[in-house]
């Protein structure tokens, strides 16, 4: 269990984190979202025991990060922002060093090292200096050291930042595979990532919590959630009719793609009513589909509201 209660941090005049509370259960993958400067990294630094909170507590498996730092940190894997690592070391030496720091010994040490190298696909660069690695490999080395001791709690600050789409996919798969029985907190501003790996999402801005829910619930807050998009051969006559349809809040016309999007006002079965209308009027339909809410749009509207 990761419990965060009333967490506050200020830097001189700037309030970075303002009374943040939440807890994460094993098996949950928490997406930690927010605009740049929202306090994501500061929060993660406090959870990891690097920065001391001005107020509030962080408990990792019951151990307080301030009063019982070492016990809390033993059960924690942390990938700091930018995935720092000792550039003058070779990858294998670096991982061995981290294993020693974590107190791994004997066959467990060897097994964990082998497993991690295989899972994160580092075998081709083991004998390279970390300095000389590409951004993608560096991030993977950072990830490898974080999961090396098989911690119960993983704090990953932008684990896929700067990776290409294939690498992003790999890292997400890795996170998803590890998530059983673990507590994982991932900060990101890539929203597709939240849908891909997270079971829960928290959005913060100005250090305050705005939303805490499942990605699904978040998507449902989108005004496009459940909207119906039509591709018509001749959209002209349909526009007015759709507008007059009961339960329709707005009709948007996209000239570029020749699409009409009908946004409902919340009354159920919008798709059915649109279908009926199409049939009654004998409209020539080339395509019709129902939209899911877009997380990025929800993110924008929520954070903009909060910041203004």
């Amino acid at each position: 269990m990761l419990e965060i209660e009333g967490l506050c941090k200020r830097f001189e005049e700037q309030v970075a984190v303002d009374d943040l509370s939440f807890s994460v259960k094993p098996g949950e993958v928490l997406g930690f979202l927010g605009p740049n400067g929202a306090g994501k990294s500061t929060t993660m630094k406090m959870i990891a025991g690097f920065l001391r909170p001005d107020a509030g507590t962080v408990r990792i498996g019951g151990a307080d990060i301030v009063d019982d730092t070492l016990r809390a940190q033993r059960n924690l894997g942390y990938l700091p922002e930018g995935a720092p690592a000792y550039g003058d070391m070779h990858v294998d030496r670096f991982l061995e060093f981290m294993a020693d720091m974590r107190g791994l010994r004997g066959t467990t040490r060897r097994q964990r090292l082998d497993t991690v190298v295989r899972d994160v696909h580092l075998d081709t660069v083991l004998r390279q200096r970390i300095d000389t690695l590409s951004k993608g490999f560096r991030r993977r080395v950072g990830l490898a050291q974080a999961i090396l001791h098989d911690p119960g709690v993983l704090i990953l600050d932008e684990p896929t930042d700067g990776l290409d789409p294939n690498q992003k996919h790999e890292v997400r798969k890795l996170i998803a595979n590890m998530s059983a029985g673990k507590i994982i907190v991932v900060s990101t501003h890539i929203l597709e990532e939240v849908e891909a790996v997270c079971t829960r999402a928290i959005i913060i801005a100005d250090g305050r919590m705005l939303i805490d829910g499942t990605p699904q619930a978040l998507a449902e807050r989108s005004r496009w959630h459940g909207a119906v998009t039509l591709q018509l051969r001749d959209s002209g006559p349909a526009l007015r009719a759709l507008d007059d349809l009961p339960g329709v809040a707005a009709v948007e016309h996209d000239d570029v793609h020749g699409e009409i999007t009908v946004i409902g006002n919340g009354t159920p079965d919008l798709l059915g009513r649109v279908n009926d209308l199409v049939r009654d009027r004998g409209l020539q339909v080339e395509g019709v589909y129902q939209k899911r809410g877009r997380l990025d749009e929800v993110f924008r509207s929520i954070t903009r509201e909060a910041l203004s």
């Binding site: 630094k45 990891a48 070492l70 940190q73 720092p84 690592a85 981290m98």
Partner: peptide, 14 residues
């Protein structure tokens, strides 16, 4: 400079 201080001080070492 390299940010490894964050790594080092979040390891179980006082």
């Amino acid at each position: 400079k390299s940010g490894t201080v964050e790594l080092l001080l979040t390891l179980p070492i006082s």
